[in-house]
C-alpha cells in the first residue's frame, strides 16, 4: 500500500492551510472594500456604532491573523519545495517562468501583508478608538487605512494571477 503521510503530503497540507488562510484574509479584504466601506455612508448615524464597535473589530482580527497565517504557511511551502530563495530573486537567471511567477506573487503578498500589519491595523486602531486619537488624527488615520486597503484590493488581482498560474503551469 502506498504511504499516505509523505513529505509531499505535508507540503500539500501546508499549501492547503495556506489557501484556507488566504481565503480568510482576502475574503475579509474584499468584504471591507466591496461591502462595509461603501455601505457606511448609507447607514444612519445612530446605527454605525454596530459596525465600528462590533463587526469591524472582529473582522479586523480574522483579517490580520489570516494575513499572518497566509505568509507563514506560504514561506514554509516555498522552503519545503526548495524554491524560496529562487522565488525571492524572481527567478532571474533561472529561466523558469514558474519561479518568476510565484516570486512576483510572494513579493506582492508580502507588500500586502506589510500593509495589513504596519499601515492598516495601526491606523484602524485610531479609527475604532482602540488607541486614543484627536478627531483630526482619527480622520487622517481613516484616510490612510482606507487607501492602503484599496491598494491591497488592487494588488490582490495580479497577486492571485501570479500565485494561481504558478501552481498549475501553463507557461
Amino acid at each position: 500500500m502506498q504511504e499516505l503521510v509523505t513529505y509531499g503530503w505535508w507540503v500539500f497540507a501546508i499549501r492547503w492551510l495556506h489557501v484556507l488562510s488566504g481565503v480568510m484574509w482576502i475574503g475579509l479584504l474584499w468584504y471591507f472594500n466591496f461591502v462595509q466601506t461603501p455601505s457606511m455612508p448609507k447607514i444612519p448615524e445612530a446605527q454605525r456604532g454596530a459596525v465600528t464597535g462590533f463587526i469591524a473589530p472582529t473582522a479586523l482580527f480574522w483579517f490580520r491573523w489570516g494575513a499572518m497565517s497566509t505568509i507563514i504557511t506560504g514561506l514554509i511551502v516555498a522552503y519545503m519545495s526548495g524554491f524560496l530563495v529562487g522565488a525571492i530573486k524572481l527567478g532571474i537567471g533561472d529561466h523558469d517562468p514558474h519561479t518568476t511567477a510565484i516570486g512576483f506573487g510572494m513579493w506582492l503578498g508580502t507588500i500586502m501583508w506589510f500593509n495589513v500589519w504596519f499601515i492598516i491595523w495601526p491606523n484602524q486602531k485610531k479609527v475604532l478608538g482602540i488607541v486614543a486619537a484627536e478627531p483630526d488624527a482619527r480622520r487622517k488615520a481613516g484616510r490612510i487605512a482606507g487607501l492602503a486597503s484599496r491598494t491591497n484590493t488592487m494588488l490582490s488581482i495580479p497577486m492571485l494571477y501570479a500565485m494561481v498560474s504558478a501552481g498549475r503551469p501553463f507557461y
Binding site: 524572481l90 533561472d94 523558469d96 519561479t99 511567477a101 484599496r150 484590493t153 488581482i157 494571477y161
Partner: peptide, 30 residues
C-alpha cells in the same frame, strides 16, 4: 483632488492593468 483608489471600479481596473504588466514582466524575465 481625489485619489484614483477612491473609486472601487478604478481600483479593480488598475488591478487588471497591473496584471497585464505582470504577465509581460514574467515573460521578459523568464
Amino acid at each position: 483632488m481625489g485619489n484614483p483608489l477612491d473609486s472601487l471600479g478604478t481600483t479593480i481596473f488598475l488591478g487588471f492593468v497591473l496584471t497585464v504588466v505582470l504577465v509581460l514582466l514574467i515573460h521578459a524575465i523568464a
